[in-house]
Amino acid sequence: MSKVVVVGSYVTDLTARTPKMPRPGETVLGGPFQMGPGGKGGNQAVGAARLGSEVTILTKLGKDLFGDDALNNFNQEGINTSYIIQTKDEATGAALIAVDPQGENMIVVSLGACGTITAEEVEKLRDSMTDADVVLLQLETSMEAIDATIRLAHELGKPVVLNPAPYQDISEELLAMVDYITPNETEAEELTGVRVTDEKTAGEAADKLHQMGVETVIITLGKKGVYLSNKEYDELVAGVTVDVVDTTGAGDSFNGAFCHFLSEGESVKNACGKANIAAALSVTKFGTAPAMPTKAEFEKLYHEVNR
Rank of each mutant, 00 (worst) to 15 (best):
N255E: 06
K223F: 08
G225A: 11
K223H: 13
T192H: 07
E190S: 14
K208V: 13
Y233R: 14
A206P: 08
Q211G: 10
F254C: 14
K231P: 06
S263T: 12
A257S: 12
G239Q: 02
H210G: 13
K223D: 14
G193P: 02
G256C: 13
F254E: 11
E185G: 06
D198A: 02
P183H: 12
R195I: 10
S253C: 04
Y227C: 05
D207R: 14
Y227E: 11
P183M: 09
V226A: 14
A238S: 15
V226Y: 03
G193H: 00
T248Q: 10
F258I: 05
G225M: 05
D234S: 15
L221R: 02
V237F: 06
I218A: 03
T216H: 09
G222H: 11
G249S: 01
E199P: 00
L262D: 04
G249M: 01
D207W: 09
A202R: 01
S229K: 15
L236P: 03
T216S: 15
T201Y: 04
E185Y: 06
V244K: 12
V194M: 07
Q211E: 13
E190H: 14
D234I: 11
V226C: 12
S263K: 10
T248P: 09
A238N: 15
T192N: 06
T201G: 05
D252Q: 01
